[in-house]
Nucleic acid binder design. Sequence first.
DNA 1: CGGGGTCTTGACGTGAGTCAATATGCGTGG
DNA 2: CCACGCATATTGACTCACGTCAAGACCCCG
Lengths: 267, 267
Amino acid sequence: MNPLQAKFARYVELDLQARTQIDGLLRSEGRLVPAGADLIREGEPIHFVKLVIDGWGCRYKLLEDGRRQVVAFLLPGDLCNPDALTAEAMDHSIGALNDMHCALIAPEVFDRACLRSHCLRQAMAFDACAMLGMQREWTLNLAARPALARIGALLCELHYRLAALGLAADGRFATPLTQVTLAEATGMTSVHVNRVVQDLRGRGLLHWHGRHITLPDPDRLAQLSGFSPRYLHMNRFVPGTFAGDPDLAAKSPRVPPRTESKIAGAI
Amino acid sequence: MNPLQAKFARYVELDLQARTQIDGLLRSEGRLVPAGADLIREGEPIHFVKLVIDGWGCRYKLLEDGRRQVVAFLLPGDLCNPDALTAEAMDHSIGALNDMHCALIAPEVFDRACLRSHCLRQAMAFDACAMLGMQREWTLNLAARPALARIGALLCELHYRLAALGLAADGRFATPLTQVTLAEATGMTSVHVNRVVQDLRGRGLLHWHGRHITLPDPDRLAQLSGFSPRYLHMNRFVPGTFAGDPDLAAKSPRVPPRTESKIAGAI
DNA sequence: CGGGGTCTTGACGTGAGTCAATATGCGTGG
DNA sequence: CCACGCATATTGACTCACGTCAAGACCCCG
């Protein structure tokens, strides 16, 4: 099972037609991007739809002062440029966190595949929703949550996404993250990331040694961090890991309580 | 000229067919959402594609502690739920900042219009790029910029988007923003927003009285705030306001300098 | 065995939050 | 036309989460 198919199957049930088209896409030319290198840079034209097959990447922007801000993580199965046919120049850069295998898909090929399968089109639409949802959630995290919750929520999201791909089990997953990268993503200093990480360790919510992370109690971490996976739109995925509790799925889609606004109902 | 058409014309040249389809969409049932009310809430099903005709809205999420975080502003011509056919439940809420007129478009009608015009499809794709781009830029703002630049960049973006619609001239535009709303959007206290606003006033970069904002020197504010409109993808728009300088368009698409990474080229 | 990237730790500085009081402006009803 | 009342804006004093700086420790890899 390739990662794109694994992810898409979390959105909708894929029929044979869709799986065939996906397989077709996967047969595109491949590319190895070494750790630390860029897949594409801000301002460059977009020639291919790129798909992460293996390894992690990140979307980032450089600031005036040279710092870099990571605005998204790319995991296996993630599309780097679904908008190849539209946008003519990148408004951000994409870098590899570890050695990263990508498929380079000609935009026309990509488009044709979408035309040929309704399921695939649907899955792509879900994926776009999820990307926007993640970005919005990330905006909220940075704006509104204190350091501990911020890091906690990021770890929960990564864990959830990886679990959906079958790349995490029992709260454990391999990762190329460093505390510096985490700092670039959370808008904090690596020094402060370090202190927060130790705090999480102290609370028994995180084991992180080298290239492996374990979340011993994802539910508690999620609660502490205000993480709820709704924005990922993976309707067909309820992680076994997140609960011995079978009612989790039922409890989860709660609407946060709203202190009554002066004007009553929504439309 | 309706605002949707005005915006889309900044992405691509609209042919007659596209303009006809857009006019068709605009004839949908309308709705008035009073200031402070919600258009739709997190968790609710999506029945319509909604288009802001007049007034301002915002996307927001509520936090555990009751604060609300604004993650995007919706201006005339903005689509609230282009994903109506895909996502079954909202992962955030949409509220009106002032009295807001919306068109409620049946998803099938929306879809049909897109099918019938290639231009329209293209414009929609651009708009999706822009929405993602804005969200990423906003992520970066919150994570990496100090309060003054954060507010500056937001004001620049709003000004740019409004100017593209013809709703700002000479740096001046009408707005329902309050310092509280601005605080909810920038992840700051309204107290601190106030101090920053006064700082901006003191520097002669902002006039803000009641429901009108003027940016006396948008270029300088943009530079101070690190704002560059690339991420808005409005290729066919170079604001007169942003420059007596006709070379601005040529200068603008710069790639920020990159301190040489250990591993050389991008692909 | 050495070296660079990574992680830790401590002392100290500061931007932004908190709390709380006061002003200002505006829409409404008298 | 004026008075009241609420939303919004402003101010000052004090606190604190997180940044800065700098030194060391660790650890994997060649």
